[in-house]
Design a protein around this nucleic acid. Structure first.
Lengths: 99, 99
DNA sequence: TTAGAACATTATAATCTCTTAATGTTTAGG
DNA sequence: CCTAAACATTAAGAGATTATAATGTTCTAA
């Protein structure tokens, strides 16, 4: 990895590094959802969700398609779901997380 | 994942989400290195490296052992190396990165 | 054509991150 | 003991992130 690549990778990781945004990725593993479903199920405001979705979209972690007055979000790169297992294991093994 | 778990996961991801810290992880994939080797090879200041290593250590991404006046850093959880492939692919496929 | 639902944008204040510079600590060797 | 090497800590300014509140846009259905 050269420096440019590390910078871009850092941006993608930053885009994931937020509880709400992780929640979105996790929820979308079950299939498409609208913005409203996402903020209701994650218990945050509509405005916050809209901002967070933009960040995920910019890094191409999710895609958004419009249908009437709604927008449907979907995972763009399901590879990142593997990361959740890896993280759970890390939390438990190295950070002594007790779920 | 519950909310606490997502918060902790976000912290781990944030610890990786920095060009220098990614560089450290990458360099350590080749085996132990001292702090001096790390900041020299990544071209940053000693002070900056020391601070970044602390962050990686707090999230248990690296471990540090002391030997005389030096400190040797090593990867604590090599699972995260898999992430580099995943990221490279993501950059190229979705973010049109040309290496 | 207009009201309401779904979503986006903007502004703002608080908090965090990043980098540099300066200084402190520990250890080995002479 | 004294010095230099290796590393850590602290402080401070610039910049980024976060959450909330307020307002704007777009589209549908009545």
């Amino acid at each position: 990895m050269n420096n440019r690549e590390r910078e871009m990778t850092a941006e993608v990781l930053k885009a994931m590094a937020h509880p709400v945004r992780l929640g979105v990725i996790e929820l979308l593993s079950g299939g498409e959802k609208t913005c409203t479903e996402l903020f209701e199920q994650l218990g945050c405001s509509q405005s916050l969700m809209s901002q967070q979705l933009k960040i995920l979209c910019q890094q191409k972690l999710i895609s958004i398609r419009k249908e009437g007055t709604q927008k449907y979000c979907a995972l763009q790169n399901p590879d990142f779901l593997k990361l959740f297992d890896c993280m759970s294991k890390h939390l438990r093994t190295f950070l002594h997380f007790k779920g």
